[in-house]
Amino acid sequence: MKKVLLHFALIAGGLVTLFPLLWMLSASFMSTGEATTYPPHVLPHAPSLDQYHALFVRLNIGRAFFSSTIIAVVSTLFSLLFNSMAGYAFARLRFRGRDRIFTLLLAALVIPAQVGMLPLFLLMKSLGLVNTYWGVIIPSLASVFGIFLIRQFMLSIPQELLEAARIDGAGEWRIYWSVVMPLARPILATLAIFTFMTTWNDFMWPLIVLSDARKYTLPVSLANLVGEHAQDVELMMAGSVVTVLPVLALFLFLQRYYIAGLMAGSVKG
């Protein structure tokens, strides 16, 4: 009896959780107006790709998809390199003030990004980076969270391994690149997924930096479209699907790494 109740609760919770996403998917295959007939349909009567067609051909959402992809991919690649270099130094190189600098960085985690956004915008403006992809990308090239994640992992790499490589005459860069990085693959995968998802889903900063609709990322594009097409439920649902699906798929395939990172990030808090 108790077991039945438990599974009833689990399934009910699952349905409530999935319903908005399933409805989004279902409505995106409806023909225009179908979701706003009374009573509204839950499933499309004649599923069609019309909304997706309109989205890509008439509204050129492919361009936003391209912007989002470029920004997320470039941010991810650079942040992997920069954060892993710094995380490695904090974990495995000895230098004066190391732990003090690291603690200072961690304390910065409570500072909301918005506090710096106004001056950051003025800085980007003076650098000529407003309304460019780089203006969106640059602030995400390194992150305290990323450095922390990598450092925690690299603390587990035995110091003897690095000393052995040094005795063999390997330079510091070589040790990092050929000894440490291959060992760090799992955590690099974790950080890659985190960074990709964060930049893909980010809304406020791209909204501020990008002024030209042709450069908008998917979230900015969607927020813009919903103003003009507030009545076109089915169209907006197709836009939401296009935006959500890539990150959801990425998560489903790589969730092992994603969950691992989440745990690592919470260990020390």
């Binding site: 989004m24 927020a223 939401s240």
Partner: peptide, 9 residues
């Protein structure tokens, strides 16, 4: 993991 703007819509 979903996009906040999309689910808000």
């Amino acid at each position: 993991v979903t996009t906040l703007v999309a689910v808000a819509i």
